[in-house]
Each structure stands twice: as structure tokens, then as C-alpha cells.
Design a protein around this nucleic acid. Structure first.
Lengths: 253, 253
DNA sequence: GTGTTTATCGTCAGGCAGACGACTATGATC
DNA sequence: GATCATAGTCGTCTGCCTGACGATAAACAC
């Protein structure tokens, strides 16, 4: 067959969907958008949109991220700037019937962001919110407002679960957890990120030894802070190292 | 904007491309297809093709894999059957100009297969071959026949490099290396897989201790073989364990 | 001052990996 | 048949890292 005869292949719509994760109040949260139109009208969904005609996939994801949150995606490996977020491709979902109306292939991306001082994603507070991933994934459960939580639209629960699992595993062997922190942070704040993402408690002393003993992971800024109460803690910035070797060990469940 | 107005989004062609890896003669090799038509006519490329109208992405990749090699993809986690190969999604490539003629988004997949007894992929020996990944990626280098090796077509060098990197890292923490082995294999054969994929030499004694000491990794079949020469070696089958904890450590380069 | 909270330093035992010696069982060679 | 080469398998030792946990330090609340 002629591989590029325009009649020889079916046309697809291509979208990007975003799993945007942050840590709020000691819980791993994801950005969810309430759908205003059918199908799945009124249900929560992941933010996303169509890839434009002359737009790279990563550029489309970065554009959607900026539109929804104001966050600027930065290159992996570069230090997290102010208002910056880590962005990487997650996986692609193309079940023929994942959208009831047409053939849509969605290239999901994963974004990790610090807790936003102004959590007003999208401008409309009623149509977008940060929700704990547990609430979004427990489709039969109840949200924090006591309301019955409906399952996420489309196959977005699966996409969210894959994104969460990627984040959980990737902070083991990379310095990616610093993407959840502001530009300057303490060892304790970084530890609470690990605890929230993994859902476990870590020994503060062993954690401190591990992260401060890994070359290139953390760079002290010289300042201290007392915003967590207790003894003032040193402030650090993310170092240049991206891969942790040996990795941070996730405790057994 | 109306998210599903057919005029609101551009049509894309969606393809699957395959990085099919195997270990032959102590070298990591990939399946390459010679292109018979422009663009990149006569150049080597990864096997692939269009996703059909009512076909899942994984199904399309499995179909292409069977067409090119006769290999049957099996579910991840299941033991490798005869003539079976591991298949997983790798990443998606959608640069607007990656194909000079039209907008094509390619969902690349990674397949790992044992060295095939009948290496006649595709039927036409002149248009398909197993080539060492080093030769395919060293675009200015020379193939094993002494011929000047042209770079792979499209962005396939990048895709191949990503697939090789995925394989190299994934055999660290999973039992995926057994996908390169026949159903029954010796510890030495498994070690030579690691050595070929990583391009390093491993200590046979420490390797033996590690793989036989990891619960669920290897299951002895009771048989022995002497096909490698020397003292007969025990035969093993892949155990049920898919994740290695602690992982196999890749020596520093 | 006392208690509470958080941060940071130290100590100790167990586990695992790298380096490497020793022994075993086969085929090849003389 | 003796010898050699090859590959597999079992042990030992040492150093590093982790988990468990004691102890001290520096802030705030009362």
C-alpha cells in the first residue's frame, strides 16, 4: 500500500491532557476541571485541549499548562525557576472508544508544580480546583466537601493513576521532588513532599542524612527560616544533580 | 471554543513505530527496514505503519510486530511464551515537521524479543535486517559490511535511542532481561544479555549470587545444558516476579 | 522557666555489593 | 588417558548504605 495516500489512513484528532500535581496541606493533589458540555457534562476531568496545526506536542502541553495555571514549563534538568513547573510526556491513550463521538488520541503529559500562592487556576473558581488524588481516584467515595464524587470523565482516572504512579516512582531515583517545592526550601519541607506523594512517614534524621549527603542534590543558600515552627532550618536550593544514585528508598507498604 | 467542532481541530495521521530489540552475537540489535519509497528512499527506518480506524494503539503495534517478525506480543507480567515478545508503549513523537509531507504523530513502542532462530523478518532479506544499535545510531559510521551507514529516516534515530535507553534502565529494576532469552536459559546467558545491553562486563560470580538470590526472579527447571561449553549449567525459566528489589546495579561507565 | 516543636548530629547493627579465591564439570587437544 | 581451556558454582571478606533510635540545639507558647 502507498503509505501516504491520503485515503489510506483515517484522520485522528490529537489532544494533550495534563496531569498537574502539587502538594497541598500534606496531600498530593491534582488539577481538575469541571466539564461544561457533554459528554460527561458536569463531571470533573483533566485539563487539556487540541494540538494545533503547527504545534509540537510538548509546546501544546506547555500552552495548556500556562492557560490553566499560569505556570511556565521549563526544560527538564534546569533548576526550577519562580513560577516554573516540571513538564514531561507521560503516555498516549488511543482506545477507539475513549471518546464517544470521534476518534481522539490523547498524549498525556505530567506536570509537577509547587503549591501555588494564588490557587485560582483558570480564573473560574467553580470550574477548576485542586483535589486530592485519592478523592479523584476513589470514584465511589466522597470529596472533602462531603459531596458524592463522580468518576473522572473519559479515561482520565486511568491517566491520572498513571501520572501519580510515574511521580511516585520518579522521585525515588531523581531529584524531581524539588519540583514540588518553592525555589528555596528546607529539608523538612522536602521530606513532607516525599511523605505526601508516597503516603508514608519517613524518619527525619535518616532523611536529612540522605539528602544532605547526596552530592549535587541540595545546595545551601545560607539563609534559614522558621516558618515551620521549631528550630530554624537551613534553606536549600535544588542542585544540578538530576539522578540520585543510590536512590531514595521507598519504605515497604 | 467548541471542543468538538470538526472544523476546530486539524486532522492528524497517527502511526505506530516499533523499536524491536534483540541480542545477537553479544550485541544489542534492532530491527531496521529499508525504505522503498520517498521520502528517505533507500534509507533504513524503524518498522511501523498507520493505526487503523477501529484499532487500539497497542493492537496496532502488536499487528505491525507480527507482520514484520512473526512475534506474538504478550501481556506484560505474563511469562514469555514461545515466539512471544515483550511489548510496551515507549513515547509519542509529534514534531510538526518530522514527516516532510504531512502532519504525522507516531506512537513509538518498544519490543524485546529473544534471538530469533529464523531471522528472516518481513520475508524480504534485502529490505529488513537486524543491525547493531551502535551502527544504527552512529550515523556517520560504517555498518558491519563496511558500507557507509546513512542516518535512519525521519526522527527514527532519536526514537531508537530513547528505546535503547528505556531497555537499559528497565532491566535494572525489572525482570525484563528475560524477554531477551528463550523460554529456558542459563544464568550465563542471562548475564550475557545484561552485558550486551549495557555494554559492560559483569562478574559472573556476583551476578550468579544476585539473580539466584532474588526471590521469584528465576525458577530452576531441573534440566542442564552444555551448549555454551564448559561445565553444564542449570536451566531456568523466568519466575513470576517482575520488579527486582533491590535492583540490579549497572556499573559506572 | 517549662514544655513543645522542629532541626541536626551521632551511634550501632544488619544487609548488600564489589573484589576475588577456590573448586567443579564438561569438551578439546595432545 | 593426561592436560588444558572454558564455563559454572560456592565462599569469604570488606566497605558502604540504610533503618532504628538516642541526644542535643534552637526557636516559640505559656
Amino acid at each position: 500500500m502507498s503509505p501516504y495516500d491520503p485515503s489510506a489512513f483515517p484522520p485522528f484528532a490529537v489532544t494533550v491532557d495534563l496531569v498537574v500535581l502539587t502538594v497541598r496541606r500534606h496531600a498530593l493533589c491534582a488539577l481538575a476541571i469541571r466539564r461544561g458540555e457533554p459528554p460527561f457534562q458536569g463531571r470533573w476531568a483533566l485539563p487539556g485541549g487540541f494540538v494545533r496545526d503547527d504545534e509540537d506536542l510538548t509546546a501544546a502541553a506547555a500552552r495548556e499548562l500556562a492557560e490553566e495555571t499560569g505556570l511556565i514549563a521549563h526544560d527538564p534538568g534546569a533548576p526550577t525557576p519562580d513560577n516554573g513547573a516540571h513538564l514531561e510526556q507521560l503516555a498516549t491513550y488511543g482506545d477507539p472508544h475513549r471518546d464517544p463521538r470521534m476518534r481522539v488520541v490523547s498524549v498525556a503529559h505530567l506536570a509537577l508544580a509547587p503549591d501555588l500562592p494564588a490557587p485560582r487556576p483558570g480564573g473560574d473558581a467553580n470550574s477548576a480546583r485542586w483535589a486530592p488524588v485519592e478523592a479523584l481516584l476513589n470514584q465511589g467515595g466522597y470529596g472533602r466537601d462531603g459531596e458524592q464524587a463522580a468518576p473522572l470523565a473519559f479515561d482520565h482516572a486511568r491517566i491520572l493513576a498513571d501520572g501519580v504512579e510515574r511521580a511516585r516512582s520518579k522521585i525515588e531515583y531523581s531529584s524531581l521532588a524539588t519540583a514540588f517545592c518553592p525555589p528555596e526550601f528546607t529539608v523538612g519541607e522536602l521530606r513532607r513532599v516525599y511523605e505526601a506523594v508516597w503516603g508514608v512517614a519517613l524518619d527525619p534524621r535518616n532523611f536529612h542524612r540522605k539528602v544532605t549527603g547526596t552530592p549535587g542534590f541540595l545546595v545551601p543558600t545560607g539563609g534559614t527560616t522558621t516558618r515551620q515552627g521549631g528550630r530554624p532550618a537551613q534553606l536549600f536550593r535544588a542542585g544540578g544533580a538530576t539522578l540520585l544514585n543510590p536512590p531514595m528508598l521507598r519504605p515497604e507498604v
